[in-house]
Amino acid sequence: MKLIIVAGTPGAGKTSILLHTIKILKQSYKPSVVKIDCLNTDDDKRFAKLDVPVLLGLAKDMCPDHFSIYNIQEMIEFANKNKSDMLIMETAGLCHRCAPYTNNSIGVCIIDATSGPNNPTKVGPFLSSADIVAITKGDIISQAEREIFRERILEVNPNCKIIDMNGISGQGAAELANMISKITICESKTDSLRHNAPFSVCTLCVGEKRVDKKHHRGLLRKMDGFQQYIGE
């Protein structure tokens, strides 16, 4: 089964773009869709209108990207149960330090051109380890800025395929569907992440709310970059 993992900045147009793309993919595949979000979403209903099996996962108190990674096996079982040959997972995507792409998935990064030309160098592995990068909202800025934005993406991810997309008109959806069809890689039980998630095991992770440094234990990093284990 093809596993497609879609990550992107909030509000970049991930769901809109996927809706257009799934319409095209449906002509040759039987996709299942998993939508991961943090606290609440209606996006699962938007996907359901396409008449494809949809599973919703809310990460609640867990980091949404960690939640997506931890639950991949369950999502694959869901797609298998629905006799799908393709699983599309849309992540909530928040800090971009995590890249939920696995080695045997097709990693699609959706990024908003209006976030400014310095953004690609800030966001990290969710962009730099993607196979396909879809740039949205390019119609709002000038051609010159679009070109600079694109060049910046290639600086951090020289081997990716870039598509200009528009979530409203559906521009680029045919191209994205075509690229997904051409990549033959399939999910496997021995799959691993392309990039490690940030390691953070500290008192904040288990619910400490007090701010002062003296209340914190674990593997912690200071403003000056010094990282140490504080605790027993």
Partner: peptide
């Protein structure tokens, strides 16, 4: 690219000077 476009959208979102912007764009092309 064979197409140069001048669109209705005149918003620059890039936070940089005119010279920095033109230098970057010249490099891209």
């Amino acid at each position: 690219k064979m197409v140069a476009q001048l669109s209705q959208n005149m918003n620059f979102v890039a936070d940089m000077t005119v010279t920095e912007f033109l230098t970057l764009h010249a490099k891209c092309r």
